[in-house]
Write a protein that binds this DNA or RNA. Structure first.
Length: 207
DNA sequence: ATCCTGGAAC
DNA sequence: GTTCCAGGAT
């Protein structure tokens, strides 16, 4: 998967992206939403995971997609039932937004999950991070994800002390993230950098 | 730039 | 009981 033939790799790919992706291939957790290219399933998983740990989100994800396996079933359900499947997760506006957005996909996109960044961003509850995740994971489009994990990996690897809770800091990291993105394998690369941040490059006493 | 969520961690 | 988190909305 990370081997690419007949193509010259950039220095940043060789020294940053490749080792990262090799590490990922060897150490990543196997999670159901990583086994699919369906943007709907990836979307559901990303919304659940926004403020929820993987361990807790897993059961909710499995139950949710079993009952609502696609946009149409979610859109035609009533809100109370959608909320029932969310019960215990908190941040219930995420579930309401999912439901509303699924109806918007039916109405405005003929039931087909949108495939451009601009359209995906129009879905309620989908910000820059989630749009980049959905499009890179499902369609391998070159959008760099930028979440807490990525901030941490980049700041440590590149020795950047700029705080991320300022406009300038966010801008700096956004540029860096875009410049080191492996455009040959955006989905794999994005998964890899976040997984490293989650498993190894952790906030306190990193491995 | 500021506010918001609500469980988890402290 | 207070603070923290991690994204999105306004």
């Amino acid at each position: 998967m990370s081997q690419r033939y007949n193509k010259k790799l950039s220095d940043i790919q060789v020294y940053f992206a490749q080792p990262l992706e090799d590490w990922y291939e060897k150490h990543h957790r196997e999670l159901p939403w990583r086994e699919t290219n369906d943007p709907y399933l990836i979307w559901i998983s990303e919304i659940i995971l926004q403020q929820t740990r993987v361990n807790q989100g897993l059961g909710y994800y499995n139950r949710f997609i079993e009952r609502f396996p696609n946009v149409a079933t979610l859109a035609s359900a009533n809100e109370e039932e959608v909320l029932k499947y969310w019960q215990g997760l908190g941040y219930y506006s995420r579930a309401r937004n999912l439901h509303k957005a699924s109806q918007m996909i039916m109405a405005d996109f003929n039931g087909v999950f949108p495939s451009t960044y601009e359209d995906v961003r129009r879905l309620k509850g989908v910000g820059e991070y989630t749009a980049a995740a959905i499009l890179s994971f499902s369609a391998n489009l070159p959008y760099a994800v930028l979440d807490g994990n990525v901030f941490r990996v980049l700041s440590r690897y590149f020795g950047i002390a700029t705080p991320i809770d300022t406009t300038a800091g966010k801008k700096e990291f956004k540029q860096l993230a875009d410049s080191v993105l492996d455009s040959d394998a955006p989905g794999l690369y994005n998964q890899a950098i976040m997984e490293l941040g989650a498993l190894q490059c952790v906030p306190i006493s990193p491995n």
